[in-house]
Design a protein around this nucleic acid. Structure first.
Lengths: 381, 381
DNA sequence: AGCGCATTTGAAAACGCTTTTCAGCCACTT
DNA sequence: AAGTGGCTGAAAAGCGTTTTCAAATGCGCT
């Protein structure tokens, strides 16, 4: 064993820079076009033309342009986005609205967000995320942020009623991703959830599972209902009579899933466990896994389990969570593409083949949490 | 077993609303103050005064105000944020910059973000997230987005060199959270990482571990160096000579951690495993757990492991990951508070007791992945 | 009737930028 | 020498708000 060369601490880059409290000077103002113009001995408009390479009418000689650019850099000039937006009527920014109430949504949203920023950076646009506690409470907030700040808004899993939808400003395009309401107020990007759920349950049945539990999200929302529908449809085709005791309703959160599963376990002591559990999303499934683990039930030896969404979290559980993959990333990217078309159309630039709805396909992802059922169903401890 | 009342599908709320393609009308423009004024038979300024309840000079009679409000609602008037910002020099928005390159950062960032939005909503501010691929490449983007769009910028885990820091606009306040460079260019919010690392390693030693491995993040960054420093300090105090073979360097991502651990395992076949592994963050630890599991090494029976950060992911592993908790949420919230003070100060409103740095405390969170070392160290298979 | 005062309202001037229009200049043609 | 046309850059007109200031109105008072 070599001896250690102490200290091993590597060099840490250090900056010497004008400290914050020194530049606390009050009323420091950013340089404007006029400032740059004054410094370069030209007018403000010449600066604008030079910096924007506007090819329309007024052209600036290379010599003047160089002078202007030098002055601009010396002054640290940066265009004021608000002023530019005011006159151009275009912010080059699209807003993303999402409810950030339960932390479990995060993984789902983060995946979508990845797609959104991929697409926005391709279009040289910015994405701005707006979060609030609930759609109903903060609807005014959504609307108040539209004008002059963003060119369009992507709503992630919005939940509206008639009254709220009427509040949407008419002059801003909206695109909804996984809308929880069947509305024509906005373009809808969705995935074939019913089919995904059906395929998953069919896969379970093909493996030999018969008593399949479904832990659903809140009833009445489009997503959960479609998943229930697919679940039932698969059972029906296999000639399995659905057992109402095996339909559990909870919310889209790990803590909720854990609670629901614990409640079910204590209400069914001594009865046989289901062969497999199909959860309405990954978060619920992870919560259930926690509850099962603390009850000493092994996955997948005693019971198989599957989720829905294929979030990152599904890959970090042990065993890894079998799930239904929605191409969230692609969906987020597509939302942006559709949005760009809408914006162009609204500005009178685009063609007229506008998309009103896009449906993505879902796929079953087999992972360790799903395997053959045990020979003898285990009883609830 | 009761029979199931089919169909179980619940009602899904439906909206009938003017479809997007109908309101595709080109050049629809939002109503302006002047429009409202025309409708109400008053001037635009009267509308502004009425709607803003400006108590300064011009007061509007209740009668006129009622008339104006009615007209504004009829026209669906909403103030144009850009125009308002232009004149008020205040966007009521703070930007949050984060590098969104590796997905592993997500859990870390999401936790901070929760704190940020908590604080911004308390201050009636908006938070806008800007993402980019790397600090060096997209620095211009950070800067270009400051002027007139946000009042201040929070940098999450920024990595700068001298040249890049010089690009920061002087008239916008910056607050850095976990800056990776020791700079005075911005206010620093950090946590006591060295102490956290030291306490964790001390906890391991107290449990009887002697051969403790550290899987570090990239050398040269402030965070990893501080964790190494704490690690070494704990070893030294316990009289343990650090073994250079037990210091592994990798990147902050699960995939990287997995790869690094696999590499170490295959390079050390037949030699004894360490008693415990202290990883520089949770993502690395999760990657290591994967590598160990696939090598048939059991946690914590064969080897104990711990992470750093206490992200959500640390709670969903089996066994749950022992980790060093940083109060990320509180840190995010504090960043906003500090920012608000800076903005007020810059506008000439605030007092002068400005904070330049805040250090939060870290705590060790004991969980299932850390227990006593095995009687006989296991050999690398 | 005339005056001062308080209360409402309107006019105009920013805010920083873009865009359109137009004048000046020079070289080149007729 | 006068006309033509291409370059270059200045002037001015907004974009939708807020803010400042002055004008208008109504009132009570002398």
């Amino acid at each position: 064993m070599r001896s250690w060369n102490l200290p091993v601490l590597g060099p840490v880059p250090t900056l010497v820079y004008v400290p914050m409290n020194v530049r606390k000077k009050k009323n420091v103002r950013a340089a404007t076009l006029a400032d740059v113009g004054r410094a370069a001995g030209v007018s403000a408009m010449a600066v604008s033309a030079a910096l924007n390479e506007t090819r329309t009418s007024a052209r600036i000689s290379e010599q003047t342009r160089a002078k202007i650019i030098e002055a601009a850099e010396a002054l640290g000039y940066r265009p004021n986005v608000a002023a530019r937006a005011l006159v151009k009527r275009r912010m080059n920014t699209i807003g993303v609205s999402v409810v950030w109430a339960d932390e479990e949504l995060n993984n789902y949203f983060v995946e979508i967000f990845n797609g959104i920023i991929e697409a926005t950076s391709r279009h040289a646009q910015n994405a701005t995320v707006f979060t609030f506690r609930s759609w109903s409470e903060d609807m005014a907030k959504v609307c108040g942020m539209c004008d002059g700040r963003i060119d369009g808004m992507i709503l992630v899993a919005p939940l509206f009623n008639q009254e709220l939808a009427a509040m949407l400003p008419h002059h801003t395009p909206f695109v909804a991703l996984h809308a929880n309401t069947e509305s024509e107020a906005f373009v809808n990007i969705e995935s074939n959830e019913e089919r995904g759920a059906k395929e998953m349950v069919k896969a379970m049945i093909a493996m030999g599972h018969r008593r399949i539990m479904h832990v659903s999200g809140p009833r009445g929302l489009v997503g959960p209902e479609r998943r229930i529908s697919g679940y039932l449809s698969a059972l029906r085709e296999a000639g399995i009579v659905p057992d109402p005791d095996l339909l559990v309703v909870t919310n889209f959160a790990a803590a909720e899933g854990c609670r629901a599963m614990n409640a079910w376990l204590s209400a069914n002591k001594g009865k046989p466990l289901p062969d497999a559990i199909f959860c309405a999303n990954d978060a619920i499934a992870i919560g259930c896994m926690e509850a099962l683990a603390s009850a000493g039930i092994r996955i997948p030896d005693d019971v198989s389990i599957a989720g829905f969404d294929d979030t990152i979290a599904a890959r970090t559980t042990v065993p890894q969570l079998c799930t239904v993959r929605q191409p969230l990333r692609a969906m987020g990217a597509r939302a942006v593409e559709v949005m760009m078309r809408r914006i162009d159309a609204m500005r009178g630039k685009g063609g007229d083949e506008l998309v009103n709805s896009v449906v993505f396909d879902t796929t079953v992802v087999l992972r360790g949490s799903l395997s053959k059922p045990p020979a003898e169903p285990r009883l609830v401890p």
